[in-house]
């Protein structure tokens, strides 16, 4: 129990802590090893810490940007599908006959269909006429 009129000077002054035996004999060598290791590592590790701190908000911004981009792209794709489904067939046909250019791959696709699958009112041409038309153009001479 401490006295009521306690004074700091009543306590004998001593360092209450100790170190492992031989610690101060080894310390200079350990310090020299650490300085040598730092010299060898150069300036790059010192730069890494502030660089990491600077990169963190940039990375966060990039993630937010990518997230927003993909979110809006995904939503936009949905809208296109919905809109396309709502377009009447006649409008699609008009668009294709006006703007679309047929590629060779389209003919390949057509060959897989049976003749009766090609309605004359869609092609606006009979199967025989179409074949004659193809014969007229020598496809082997076309440049790709």
């Amino acid at each position: 129990m401490m006295k009521k009129d306690f004074k700091l000077s009543d306590i004998p002054k001593r360092n209450p802590y100790q170190v492992p035996e031989g610690y101060f004999d080894r310390l200079p060598m350990q310090v020299m090893e650490r300085t040598a290791a730092r010299e060898k590592a150069g300036w790059l590790p010192n730069l890494w810490q502030p660089l990491r701190l600077a990169m963190a908000p940039l990375l966060l911004l990039l993630l937010v940007f990518v997230g927003v981009y993909y979110y809006s792209a995904f939503n936009g794709q949905d809208k296109v599908l919905v809109n396309l489904a709502a377009v009447p067939d006649t409008e699609i046909m008009n668009y294709l006959s006006t703007y679309a250019t047929l590629e060779t791959t389209d003919f390949v696709e057509l060959n897989t269909l049976r003749e009766q699958d090609l309605p004359a009112d869609v092609l606006n041409i009979s199967a025989q006429t179409a074949e004659a038309e193809l014969e007229y153009y020598n496809l082997n001479t076309l440049d790709y």
């Binding site: 802590y17 492992p20 101060f24 310390l27 310090v31 650490r34 300085t35 730092r38």
Partner: peptide, 27 residues
């Protein structure tokens, strides 16, 4: 080294922490 170590040790109490900090001071 001893002055530096004991100054640090009394602040951080733990020997391992004081050892690491002392080395860092000299670096």
């Amino acid at each position: 080294q001893e002055k530096v170590y004991w100054h640090i040790r009394k602040m951080v109490i733990d020997h391992d922490d004081a050892d690491d900090l002392t080395q860092e001071v000299f670096v």
